[in-house]
Design a protein around this nucleic acid. Structure first.
Length: 286
DNA sequence: AAGAGGCCCTGATAGC
DNA sequence: TGCTATCAGGGCCTCT
């Protein structure tokens, strides 16, 4: 599920549900996530009031006490489920009803007064971390490039970063130290709209191509957020949930299908770039 | 130092 | 049906 738009949707939903609520209890069923869940995790969070929830890149950030934080990264397969105690229909689209809670891999459960929040993650590439000062949190995010929507993601910046670099642009868009939050789906989509070949070496990009990448990154991610993110592969399990952006894909998962550009007769091509599937139109993207 | 590749893990699907 | 191989939305680590 989770690239920037999906994480943003989860964050927004969490803000509606758990902001200003007190965590009554935490249960960890499996500590073996990407990183070990710390021993003091449960006791630290117990009886703490959540001040607010924010997002940096693909990380969800809970401010627990003033300037102390819990972060959650969903990895490849992490999902967050709201389980309510009553049968009242939950109108918040990003959450699940009880019947939709998977049987397995419910690794962490946060108990509140009238509901619980469940962290589920089959592949366990996700993780949680606690930071007890704002400085620790900022240091942790130090390596991350700018948020795609920030003004510091501009052509001057890309010119500097791309100079003399032979890596291809698809790979570079996935590099979180360049710009943070883009994942494998949106990288292909951004390059299609920008009409740039994913294999193109960044040192050969013109300034106008960089400009297109910047604008289209913002455009694609914003539109995906507006559509509630992309829901793929777990369709059957997602009820009461959500995203519609997968209907807007131009190239991702569309191998052999027609290029959506007007007057283009080509089919979408799938290639591997650093072992990640990459989709593009050979005719439109030069 | 930059860039490529392996690896962590489970589940769905394709092919034999 | 039942096996094996391949592939998934991420990111850290190691090697050259």
């Amino acid at each position: 599920m989770p690239e920037l738009p999906e994480v943003e949707i989860v964050k927004q939903s969490l803000n509606k549900i758990v902001k200003s609520k007190i965590i009554k209890k935490v249960l960890v069923n499996n500590r073996n996530l990407r990183f070990k869940v710390p021993k003091n995790f449960e006791s630290y969070l117990k009886e703490k009031k959540i001040i607010k929830i924010s997002r940096r890149s693909k990380y969800i950030i809970f401010e627990i006490i003033l300037e102390q934080y819990l972060i959650i990264h969903l990895g490849m397969s992490g999902t967050i489920h709201l389980i309510t105690n009553n049968n009242q229909k939950n109108t918040n689209l990003s959450f699940y009803q009880k019947k939709d809670l998977p049987q397995n891999h419910n690794h962490i459960i946060f108990f509140f007064n009238n509901f619980k929040i469940v962290y589920n993650d089959p592949r366990r590439f996700g993780f949680v971390k606690i930071f007890k000062t704002k400085l620790d949190l900022l240091n942790y995010f130090n390596k991350l490039g700018p948020e795609p929507f920030s003004n510091s993601f501009n052509t001057q910046y890309l010119k500097k970063r791309f100079k003399n670099r032979i890596k291809n642009i698809k790979n570079f868009l996935l590099d979180q130290s360049l710009v943070s939050g883009i994942g494998n789906i949106y990288a292909s989509e951004i390059l299609f709209i920008s009409k740039i070949n994913p294999m193109k070496k960044v040192k050969n990009l013109t300034v106008s191509e960089m400009y297109k990448i910047i604008l289209n990154t913002k455009f694609v991610l914003k539109k995906a957020i507006r559509k509630g993110g992309s829901s793929i592969r777990d369709f059957k399990n997602i009820i009461g949930s959500r995203g519609n952006y997968q209907k807007e894909f131009n190239v991702y998962a569309r191998e052999y299908l027609s290029c959506p550009s007007k007057r283009c007769e080509s089919k979408i091509t799938k290639i591997n770039i650093n072992n990640r599937a990459t989709y593009y139109c050979k005719n439109c993207q030069k």
